[in-house]
Design a protein around this nucleic acid. Sequence first.
DNA 1: AATGAATGAGCCTTCATTCAT
DNA 2: TATGAATGAAGGCTCATTCAT
Lengths: 197, 197, 197, 197
Amino acid sequence: MSNKTDYKKQLILEKAAEIFAAKGYRDVTMKDIVEACEISRGGLYLYYDSTESIFLDVIKASEDAEEACGKSIVESLTEASSAELLLWFLKEQKKEILKRKTSLSVAIYEYAFYCRQELHNSSIKQRFESATKVLEKILARGSETGEFLCDDPSGMASNMMYAIEGLKICARTMGISENKVDKELVYMMRQFMEVED
Amino acid sequence: MSNKTDYKKQLILEKAAEIFAAKGYRDVTMKDIVEACEISRGGLYLYYDSTESIFLDVIKASEDAEEACGKSIVESLTEASSAELLLWFLKEQKKEILKRKTSLSVAIYEYAFYCRQELHNSSIKQRFESATKVLEKILARGSETGEFLCDDPSGMASNMMYAIEGLKICARTMGISENKVDKELVYMMRQFMEVED
Amino acid sequence: MSNKTDYKKQLILEKAAEIFAAKGYRDVTMKDIVEACEISRGGLYLYYDSTESIFLDVIKASEDAEEACGKSIVESLTEASSAELLLWFLKEQKKEILKRKTSLSVAIYEYAFYCRQELHNSSIKQRFESATKVLEKILARGSETGEFLCDDPSGMASNMMYAIEGLKICARTMGISENKVDKELVYMMRQFMEVED
Amino acid sequence: MSNKTDYKKQLILEKAAEIFAAKGYRDVTMKDIVEACEISRGGLYLYYDSTESIFLDVIKASEDAEEACGKSIVESLTEASSAELLLWFLKEQKKEILKRKTSLSVAIYEYAFYCRQELHNSSIKQRFESATKVLEKILARGSETGEFLCDDPSGMASNMMYAIEGLKICARTMGISENKVDKELVYMMRQFMEVED
DNA sequence: AATGAATGAGCCTTCATTCAT
DNA sequence: TATGAATGAAGGCTCATTCAT
């Protein structure tokens, strides 16, 4: 009954995702998940044998969801102006930067630290790189159409993504105001386009 | 007995710093520290009642050390060219980005995540802000002397520091090559000065 | 449905026998048996409600098999010389002593220990006693025909069987070389007949 | 405070020995021992990290005790007649054969099976071999003095010990009467000396 | 001040057994 | 009959924290 199993796993992943978002990675115990799912201890072990395996599936699922989202970007690429696309992209990033409580990102960071090795092939990296690619595409297109003044879309995309990553981590560690985030994003945009305040 | 106490605390902090650098924050137990310090379990509790309190003191101590270092910068400000200062600053940042095993940064990130609240008044923030200030000063001075082409030293310093923070976290989670770090740093410098490859 | 039931039980016993031979008694779980039989957990419980009940049936079945074998001895009794019969008997014992991995004997010992009570009526005892009887018959016959010099076939058979039992247990606990087994068996034979080395 | 530790270990071993004697090896849990010793779970782990490590120490201790006993034999060797020594030896063996509830032997067997490998260097083997040596010495001495009629003390000692081992295991699995044990021991003695019933 | 043995809460994991389908 | 998901008791282990000495 692979279907039933998948369904149950689905349920577990949904509850687990909430828990990981709320507590990060390290503090989550099998007991937490068992209680959230309202199943028995042994029952959970039928599907997953560790918080790690659950977490990895949670991440995979969240990626799949993002990927679906990503596709819509690619499709929109032909319809919207580059400036519009860029705005959309940065708004998404801003959202991600500011939402701390409901995002898996802290758990992901914690997991990366927990592993204590560079996760070269991990989804974390892929996530970062695919976002960079999307941004690069937008910049390149804007550059071609003359909307943006940018002679090195790749370098710029990379630089911007690192700064965004820095904003994300700062938001989660030392805190950051929405205003400050706006300021930083606008600063980046100014490097290659006119921005009215 | 304050002196003796301080001396003992000093010893504990030194050993603990090594452990936190090696294992991060979450994995360190009182036992780890007790063993490294070669004191008794109960003895450690005379000075500190949790790994957290030890960690906070470790951080404070490392800041004090950095601060001393920072002062030398300020002093050198009058002696060296801005370009030289900038190079020195970025080299320090690069070192920090690439050294993963012997730095407290992972432990600091882990601690921040563990607290799960923005540490507005924390040393983490102060550290970040003081580095930003230093960079801003360098940029401002370079701008005044005409070495750099930079009309917003504050915004640029901030932007650069976020990107550097992003590099740091990426180095610790997904891994990054020295080459890539160089590329990014050069990219940043190009925004306001001529760089020969 | 008795036939179908018997057939299913037969299948279970065959697989279970292999498992008990490989793992002994204590380490075998219902899961082991379920997996080997490729039936469902609940399915197994329709036929047996514990590893113990399965084990007891496995033992019973293995006895039935041996019994059939035993009958052929009795029949051969009239055809072969006593010396030949004795050799055959001791060869069988030697085989049993030395085969550790594929025999149920470890499981049987473990079961006996697990029960922690003398199994007066158990098949273990019957097995031992019937082997003793067979040996006694052989010795008595050899004594009558003058092949063996043995005035107390019963006492001798009993003594030999205990020594053989001792060899069996030593082989399974401290290990024993084939050579050593041979030496012991020859020693026993020398007590009542000429043996060329 | 190695003394204090040793003392505590001593206490644990005493209680544990009782438990192993009563329950064998496999059924004993850390909880059993914790409860018998009236210490906390964590407390036990200060001294031993598994039932196995406790068991091995229990065995070692019981050997040491036996060894002390063994020495007295060697000393008596010069004082008593060989027949007296032999009687003493066999009485000891008989005691060991018949005492089931208070002996570690079942636990030792169980442990050997649990390991599922021949324990070539184990104390089990050493115990067996040293007993064999003692018996051999007695037989050899009796043979020299003319008390026993025995031209192969080594072979005979070995054979007897296997039979005794067989008696021991049979006593623990299928049960055996004191009478039967006596009969077997007398049978053995008859092989090399006159025995009045 | 200092020691380190002792505690017990809390998490992990496995398995016999049940039960709705 | 047959299935296999679900249960929960039971045992293992670790660690922060206390306390008599």
